[in-house]
């Protein structure tokens, strides 16, 4: 291999990776959003609330702590864009859909678990976000972001 070939590979490889990550990442995100919207539509009649004072006419039979979580990571292309954005500051648009869909996924998992176990509602829902440390320790890359949703599932005898 001549020097030019090596230089060409050095230039094209990250570029190819960038294009590959962009296409596949965008596809995964679109598919995930379609999935989230479909599942949310199916659970619309299930009460999930962030307060703990229940309506007076609800008669609670039993309760259970339920949770749902997901660890999600950004694709390479969007990470590069976010890195560039960090140089000038401002709104980091590429991160917004990531956090949004992770949070909705966590809530959906919690609700689906509660429904599968015969509960009728979830009260006092709390959401938490934490960033997992990466093992490289150089601050580059990411090990992902965890979204946790938890609440008290209620089984009602009357409502």
């Amino acid at each position: 291999m001549g020097l030019e070939t090596i230089q060409l590979v050095n230039f094209l490889l990250p570029l190819g990776l960038l294009v590959f990550a962009y296409l596949l990442g965008a596809w995964i995100e679109r598919r995930h959003y379609r999935d989230i919207l479909a599942r949310e539509a199916g659970l619309r009649s299930f009460p999930v609330v962030t307060f703990e004072t229940l309506p007076d006419n609800w008669q609670v039979e039993s309760v259970e702590l339920v949770s749902g979580s997901v660890v999600i990571s950004l694709d390479y292309f969007k990470r590069v864009i976010a890195g560039l954005r960090a140089l000038v500051g401002g709104r980091v648009k590429t991160y917004e859909p990531l956090l949004d869909r992770a949070r909705r996924e966590a809530v959906l998992r919690m609700v689906e678990h509660a429904q599968a176990n015969g509960y009728d509602a979830i009260a006092n829902v709390r959401l938490e976000t934490s960033r997992l440390a990466n093992s490289r320790g150089d601050g580059n890359g990411t090990a992902g972001i965890e979204m946790l949703a938890f609440g008290t599932a209620l089984s009602l005898s009357r409502r």
Partner: peptide, 18 residues
Amino acid sequence: AGLKNIVGGELVGYTELL
């Protein structure tokens, strides 16, 4: 997870671990 980091999406192994 390192491989998955390229295309993004859920890191199932970590979700389970946590």
